[in-house]
Design a protein around this nucleic acid. Structure first.
Lengths: 407, 407
DNA sequence: AGTAAATTGTCAATTCAAACAACAAACTTA
DNA sequence: TAAGTTTGTTGTTTGAATTGACAATTTACT
């Protein structure tokens, strides 16, 4: 029976409702990425008829997802087209449970972070406690939301491997969590749809939606924080793998070294490119991202420079590997990897070119990430937002903030 | 203007015709993978209505893509369902331009190789000559096709990097080709749609459609021939990358060794896992796949065993890297890599487990490939077949073999 | 200022693919 | 033989996109 075998999405037949939902989704997706578009632009981008766009926009308006306005400036010959924009009162919560603190943000459909709240984490944070803290912050922010705001869900960024479909944190070395059902627990407390993913993957999503990678659809992303994580976008879609663990790009074995990384693997990119070593040679105890970058770019220590060069060489190999494997349009270096890149761009590119196939490297660009402060807020929020984009009419079932609406 | 930016497929709106084409495609896709299905099975697999399946099958029948028959055995309670099968008189040409010879096959929609023709290649094969040889063989086979056979196109497997969209061989080290417009040239001669891709990628496609990977939709494939190539399937779709060069899995840098691979890169999987070295320690001048495997499995030379072990260790690292990156359901080892795997399964798996993340490795299986003789015929034919599956009604524009049809 | 050309929005009518409801057909089981 | 189950078929309904005609609004040109 074919039912038991690979029920790929393309095997499913579609009916008229699916058709409508797809077209609503196409419109919402464009508006999400571009903020505001005219109805004429929507017509040409989707290839649909004027009348159809008119109907679709009307339906989205009645769902409260978009609003229309007159075009401001001059628009050329012909009747000016009506501008369509995403509604500002539809938001998602973004949660980032990091080692030192939990941060929760309120992000609207344009990727703007409207509010943020942060609470330091205790040592030995348990999953239950982490969920509790996240929920507390959500409650706190939820109370401050304008009346009439609709909430589409919660996106959570976790420094670890996540079974995306079940919302279970399979392994988070920073907290020593194993099989923590973070998603279901938070869903029970907050009573909102919860989506979880690896933090680096979400950083990649953020750069694609709002950062340096907006123009691209084949993206490799490397993030240097405590460890080295990664994210991959292929033809506009996030790479997740069979269970959700994909794109562990920091754990790629690149050398015969027997230095261990944070997951105990030897000779990996993460074992060679490491923040703690940078702090050590810079004689810093701690530093945020900007401070570390400033220190890297201004150091005159010879010992430090040598360490930077070694890390840059390893990074060059890592990037080359990923270019050979994925043939992306762009490689984005983020976190302290961007700082290393800025320290000696030429060296990194030279090492990269040495280890990448000629054809694969000739059209790829390597650039630093653009977002920093709100990176994971935007990325995490993107999860519920993407779910909404894929099924716009689901908005009608989302909770609405009570109270009298301000005018 | 959004037109200039990422016109992702999902941005395009769909109309009724697209809907119909998608549903036709769903039916054809299922039939292509499963050969014969009842209309009832099609109904449940697609989720469409009985009536709709009836209409879709009727349309496919009138297109000559499928035929119906009575079910043979007992079918359980209720009225027996009509069986639907792919038509046998729709075929694709498969071309494999390898170093020693060019092979052309005729493959039907069920992945059966109906005919095959082979001609040795001269030394210093030029692109023009290669196309000429391929076309000669095609003409030869075409003349032997039964009258009424419809030809949907030509799929070509090339040992090198291919710009898939343009059909240009960017770089084929075996032939020293650079930017050879193989696709357009063959298209001009044969006057049929031509699709080209890297041979290892097509091996992966073949294993997915007709081989060991039928049950899976997240697949990593490694092929050991002259060099080491690879293919990746993600959620049922082939990984191609921005320009078509993706999945060069043999050129991943895994060690500090300065041994060069066939593309001049050092420390790569291909530089450590190599057929020529195997032949050398086995004291063989040449060997086909089966002979090599027999020699590997029966050797008693200590020197050879050590070499095997070294290569197996390198392969284990390579597999671990790919599992960390892709989190696949299955890793398939093909060509002489399968032979190495069979030589010491335990050692390979141990080395793999040592270098892969615990979570990522726990649900993946490593298995040898199943196809060998017709691997690339099936894989190459899969290209035009997939094009047909995606747009079934395009069949009406395909050429038909002339002559009186046999009865 | 006035008119032509270009572009966009809207309305009514049309199209057609999928679903639905009812019934017929063909099998198994008691 | 009758009841129950599943599948195929026919006629009808539904609804999303399209089409064509016309109105609205701007720019360009005389």
């Amino acid at each position: 029976m074919p039912n038991s075998l690979l029920p790929t999405d393309s095997d499913r037949g579609r009916n008229r409702e699916d058709l409508r939902e797809h077209n609503l989704s196409a419109v919402v997706g464009l508006l999400h990425r571009f903020g505001t578009l005219s109805r004429a632009q929507l017509t040409s981008s989707t290839g649909l008829n004027r009348t159809t766009i008119s109907n679709l926009v009307a339906e989205l308006k009645s769902l409260g997802l978009v609003f229309e306005s007159q075009s401001a400036g001059p628009t050329g010959v012909g009747r000016p087209s009506v501008m369509v924009s995403m509604s500002g009162d539809v938001v998602a919560f973004a949660v980032n449970t990091a080692l030192d603190a939990t941060t929760v943000g309120v992000v609207n459909l344009l990727g703007q972070v409207l509010m943020k709240a942060r609470r330091p984490n205790p040592a030995n944070l348990s999953p239950v406690m982490a969920v509790q803290i996240a929920n507390d912050l959500i409650i706190h922010l939820r109370a401050k939301l304008a009346p009439g705001t609709r909430i589409i869900g919660i996106g959570v960024a976790i420094p670890g491997q996540v079974r995306v479909a079940e919302g279970v944190v399979r392994f988070a070395p920073a907290f020593k969590w194993i099989n923590a059902p973070f998603g279901p627990m938070l869903n029970k407390l907050a009573n909102l749809p919860v989506y979880i993913d690896n933090d680096a993957s979400l950083g990649c999503l953020a750069e694609r939606t709002m950062g340096s990678a907006r123009k691209y659809k084949d993206i490799v992303y490397l993030f240097g924080g405590t460890g080295v994580g990664g994210g991959v976008v292929i033809d506009g879609k996030q790479l997740r793998g069979a269970t959700g663990y994909a794109s562990e790009l920091g754990h790629v074995h690149i050398s015969d070294s027997d230095v261990e990384d944070h997951s105990g693997l030897v000779g990996t990119l993460e074992s060679a490119v490491r923040r703690d070593k940078l702090l050590e040679v810079l004689k810093l105890k701690a530093a945020n991202e900007d401070e570390l970058e400033a220190a890297i770019l201004s150091t005159e220590s010879r010992e430090a420079s040598i360490e930077f060069q070694n890390q840059i060489d390893a990074l060059g190999v890592g990037v080359a590997n990923l270019v050979n494997i994925f043939n992306p349009q762009v490689v984005i270096l983020s976190g302290f990897l961007a700082s290393l890149f800025k320290f000696d761009r030429e060296r990194l590119l030279a090492e990269f070119q040495k280890h990448a196939l000629v054809a694969s490297q000739e059209e790829v660009v390597v650039i630093p990430g653009k977002l920093s402060a709100n990176l994971l807020m935007i990325g995490a929020a993107e999860l519920p937002i993407q779910a909404l984009v894929e099924a716009p009419s689901s908005i009608s079932q989302m909770p609405v903030t009570k109270g009298r609406r301000k005018i």
